[in-house]
Design a protein around this nucleic acid. Structure first.
Lengths: 252, 252
DNA sequence: ACAAAAGTGTTATCGCTACACCCATGT
DNA sequence: ACATGGGTGTAGCGATAACACTTTTGT
């Protein structure tokens, strides 16, 4: 118990917590991890859900598609790193982002022990403009239902993110993050059908959503559509918060 | 672009991904993180949900209660570290465990940059025996509804874990992890009421659960209770999987 | 006129809530 | 006898699923 060397000063005093890793190797040996973030950036376009993938320009996995991600700076918060990646890729900052899972397999990254934290972001594709920088042409939207093979363990990260999104989208009104500010009920229905992979009855869907009471009828109509124009609605965040505080809970 | 020194060989070839942190500081500077795990170990006892807390024997926060947790070894998987902590504390290995969130604030740990991954575990308190080791007397069950102040950011970790548990317990039959193998419907109802903080009508709760069809009636009765003994049931995992594959989904 | 999607009303059924009531056991 | 929780039946209300139908626009 007192046979320790000087490098392990932090641990000397504590005979009790023998289960701690501190007692078995010097503490500075633990500070050898790198952290990264990987972001599943999702957009809704042409009736399907897409994610942004980047073609890798470095080994390992050179040439493969991968999630946009990066190492976390030693003095940077993990969440901030995720937003940095998003901003560098899309120029967007005020975007709904949610942490998913953390992937800590020892051999998941060839360069060393890199633990990565997954995120997903919901962007409105109307607002997204590929940044005019040198890497812009390596970025593309791919359909989440297509069968693209991504580098590292990114396929798993995407699958987990989608599962968590689907779970959340049923219980919280976050679907609107993927729609333009003004949308028709039809567009909203299509979005939910694309995300959840289910079909809904039009009449019933409308009644359900309208009766929830957090949509604002903008008294405007769609323009230039080759069919009867739909009424435009917007999500009324304030109203939703008010309803929520009164015990209402979104559910689909 | 070619002004780099030898230590940075990994980065030389890539003019394209300028957004990457790789380009701004040498790569080995990123490998300075430590990882830890913190486990919210939950048990159901005396009609309320409790968690295991450990009194800290080291600075920082010496003497405060904290979540059981530890640093992750450089060659250890994160999930394995979480199970190690659990086993060292309770002796249990086959326990339902779920990752929650990852906490990456720069200053969250005084010793250095330690990013921690949260977990919760659901243990059946009947199976838990405090291990007869020197630190056993520093461990105690505390009520999750009490107002205990934990070290580090552990209050937040607990709050997040409970929120995620409550969400999950509604949609997946994991409540049984907190019950003995054989239980009455009354016990089950009390458990759900404790976890979710809601009250249910006895008759309706029973009908709902029974009709789901994944409980096995053991045709046994409670013993030595000061009231009419209840029928004992067990969760039939096999039956549940079968129902699930047929489209059934648990919901409460 | 037609296609395509918006938008509305009706009905029948299923599920759930509320509530009342009886049963078995230990003290 | 009483307290305590186990256990069951029913009536009525409300949500919603299924489907048919009408409306408005562009081509």
């Amino acid at each position: 118990m007192k046979s320790q060397e000087s490098e392990q000063t932090m641990v000397e005093e504590q005979p009790k917590h023998q289960y701690s890793a501190y007692y078995q190797i010097p503490i500075d040996k633990f500070f050898q991890f790198a952290m990264s973030v990987d972001n599943v950036i999702l957009g809704y376009h042409e009736n399907s859900l897409k994610l942004l993938a980047v073609e890798r320009g470095t080994e390992p996995y050179l040439g493969m598609m991968a999630l946009p991600g990066d190492l976390v700076y030693p003095n940077e918060e993990v969440d901030v790193a995720a937003r940095r990646v998003l901003k560098d890729l899309t120029g967007l900052t005020d975007v709904y982002t949610s942490q998913t899972k953390t992937y800590g397999k020892v051999d998941r990254h060839p360069v060393g022990r890199v633990v990565t934290v997954g995120f997903y972001s919901l962007v409105n594709v109307d607002r997204y403009r590929p940044l005019a920088s040198s890497w812009a042409d390596n970025v593309s939207w791919i359909d989440v239902n297509g069968h693209v093979d991504l580098a590292f363990d990114h396929n798993v990260i995407v699958a987990d993110a989608l599962a968590m999104l689907r779970e959340k989208v049923r219980h919280q009104p976050i679907g609107f993050e993927l729609l333009p500010k003004k949308f028709t009920l039809g567009e909203m229905q299509s979005l939910y059908e694309a995300v959840l992979g289910e079909r809904y009855d039009k009449a019933n869907f409308r009644k359900r959503i309208i009766s929830m009471g957090f949509l604002k009828d903008l008294k405007e109509l769609q323009q230039d559509v080759p069919h009867r124009p739909g009424r435009l609605f917007s999500f009324d965040e304030e109203k939703y918060q008010h309803l929520k505080s009164k015990g209402f809970s979104f559910g689909l």
